[in-house]
Every structure is written in C-alpha cells, then in structure tokens.
C-alpha cells in the first residue's frame, strides 16, 4: 500500500491553477523528489501534503486514509524549509524537543530522543547554542533533527540546501542521502536542482506549469524522458527534429538506423545526450562555436552541417580544442531516443 498519495489533486488560486490534476504515490520508505522550474507547483504540492493548503479537487491519503481536511498539526509531518525556520527564542536542544513536547512525549524521553538525533547528525555539541549563532550547514542539521524528532509519517524537504555553498551542499547531499536510506523514512524532497534530486531520490516527479510531466526513477527520467520539457530540464539535451521511414532515422545532415524500440513513423523529435556522442572518430564533421570549461570536462557547442547546434561533452584531454576547430563525431542509434512525435 502506498504510504502517501496525491489523488488527482488540483489546486487553484483564483484563476491560477497551481497544481493541475496531479497523482503521485509515494511508497513506504521511498524518497520521492519533485523537480521543476520556479512556479511549476512543486512547493504547492508539498504544502498540500503537509496540510497548509486544501486541494480544490482530489484527495491526499496517508496509508489509504483520507487526510485532505486534517489540519497540519494533526498530520505528523516533519518539515524542513530552505530558511530552516528555527525558533530563535529557544536553544538547539529545545528546538528539537519542541515537536515531541507538542505530541505529549515525557520530558525524559524527549530529551533522550533529541540527544540521540543530535548525535546522529553529529551536532551534539550544539545542544545549548542559540540557533542564530549557527552556520547554514549546522542550522540545516538542527532543522532536520527537529523534523525527525516527531518520528514523522512523512518527511517533507522544501529546497533545504538552496542557501548553502557548493562544497557544503555536496557533502550534505551525500550525508542526507545516506541518512534517509538508513532511517528508511518516507520522504518528499522538493527542489529545482535536478542534480540533487537525481542523486538522492528513489523516484522523481517532474512538474511544469502545475502538471505532472513524468514520474520515474532517475535513470528512466534521464534516459527516457517523456517529452521535450523533461528532456531539457533534466540534464543537457540535444533535441533534433528528424523523420523515420522504413527503420531509418533521417536527421537532415545524415541517416542512422532508427532505434529498435521506436514505433513511430514520420516526423519525430529525438534526444541525444552530449555524453553519448563519441567525439574524435566518426563520419560527421562539426565546427566548434563555443567552449565552456567546467573543471571535470569541457562543454562545447558545435554547428552541424545544416546549421543546427549540438552540445558535446569533451573530456579534459581535448582541452586544446579551440573555437572554429572541426571535430568528427558519430551518432550511435542506441543513444538516440525518440521522445515525441511532432505530427
């Protein structure tokens, strides 16, 4: 049975449809990510699960039970915000024991539980500190400990790493991912950062303009995007228009065998990821128009013979490549994914 589910949920604010007929089932112990650009409805979806918004249509269920109209304080959800929203009038320890206290847990037990969580998150020495004096990373851990202290039905994370620097974000991402896996807690993780979602979530729901575009594992979303939006939002995408006739995909500048899984005939849009285009040996020559050094690799923009642009990923051994150089590439039929018929 699904632990938490949104069933055909719609949320309107006056004439604006923030969430449009969205259905998501989050399994017991699963980490579900919701990603999408700003204003896509992902935070509204989280607020609907938390109980801070009531759906215009549809239902929210916990373990099959309809909680659509249950107030947030009775839903037992752990919430961590981007700003952490720690209570500055209380010490760190008191922040963490606040939730259990509201749930009627005895003083001794809530103190034990808080100390256990602070130790688990490696911040036990901060127990008596004023939250205002903590760094962003420390505040994030306190916010997480506070949310976990109520042993929540579901943990809701709303962009919890947005304000952190890149290195800290990377470390915390690994730690948080490991923690969620160890605790086996059902989690809804809302972020606009697709890399975070890919590395931390068991499944990802991609939203755009209130609609659910696709839901699947990170690999499914990346390798088999349902449409152009998902292909473009998750990772870097080369979207090319072509035509399939008799098992052959014509891309204007050349032809390759159509992917075996393809059933469409006629005009199609295909996706080719930059990391799946071998560079250096191939029948197709492209001219490099732009180079972006990214440390671990170089991202290049190249012009195809028919004038269209293609993004390539070059390893660092090719750092001598310059703008205006010609590169030979190959497009392997196995790396071509037909994502949408344009007819």
């Amino acid at each position: 049975m699904s632990e938490v589910s949104l069933e055909n949920v719609t949320k309107r604010f006056d004439s604006t449809v923030a969430v449009d007929d969205v259905s998501i089932d989050i399994d017991d112990g699963e980490v579900m990510g919701i990603v999408g650009p700003s204003g896509c409805g992902k935070t509204t979806a989280l607020r609907l699960v938390a109980g801070f918004e009531t759906p215009t249509d549809g239902a929210i269920r916990y373990d099959g039970e309809d909680v659509t109209h249950v107030p947030p304080e009775n839903r037992n959800v752990g919430l961590v915000f981007q700003s952490y929203a720690l209570f500055n009038n209380m010490s760190v320890l008191k922040n963490v024991t606040f939730g259990p206290k509201m749930h009627g847990v005895s003083k001794r037990e809530r103190r034990e539980r808080a100390e256990e969580l602070l130790e688990l998150l490696d911040i036990e020495e901060l127990a008596d500190r004023d939250p205002k004096t903590l760094s962003g990373g420390q505040q994030q851990r306190v916010g997480l400990a506070r949310a976990l202290a109520i042993e929540p039905h579901i943990l809701l994370l709303d962009e919890p790493m947005t304000g952190l620097d890149a290195k800290l974000k990377q470390n915390l991402r690994q730690e948080l991912g490991q923690l969620l896996e160890d605790l086996g807690i059902t989690t809804l993780y809302v972020t606009h950062d697709q890399e975070q979602a890919m590395s931390m979530c068991d499944r990802i729901a991609v939203m755009n303009e209130g609609r659910l575009e696709q839901i699947g594992t990170p690999a499914e979303i990346y390798e088999q995007p349902a449409n152009e939006f998902v292909a473009g939002f998750i990772g870097t995408a080369n979207l090319l228009e072509g035509t399939i006739r008799d098992g052959t995909l014509s891309l204007g500048f050349g032809e390759v065998d159509a992917p075996e899984t393809t059933v469409e005939e006629g005009d199609v849009t295909v996706l080719v990821r930059p990391d799946e285009i071998p560079v250096g040996d191939g029948p197709l020559d492209v001219e490099v128009t732009n180079l972006f050094y990214q440390g671990e690799h170089v991202q290049a923009t190249a012009e195809l013979p028919d004038g269209r642009e293609l993004t390539l990923r070059l390893d660092r051994s090719r750092k001598t490549v310059g703008t205006g150089d010609t590169l030979s590439i190959d497009i392997d039929p196995s790396s071509v994914h037909v994502i949408q018929s344009t007819e």
């Binding site: 304080e73 839903r75 752990g78 700003s83 929203a85 209570f87 509201m102 749930h103 949310a147 109520i150």
Partner: peptide
C-alpha cells in the same frame, strides 16, 4: 522574520495555531 515558515514549522510539529 520568515513568519510563514516559522509558523508552519511549529504547526507541522504538532502545535495548534494559538500555541
């Protein structure tokens, strides 16, 4: 303060609005 997030954090932890 970020009133909305502070209020919603407290309520998600089980505190009623008056509390």
């Amino acid at each position: 303060m970020d009133l909305q997030q502070i209020e919603e954090s407290a309520r998600s932890l089980g505190a009623s609005w008056p509390r």
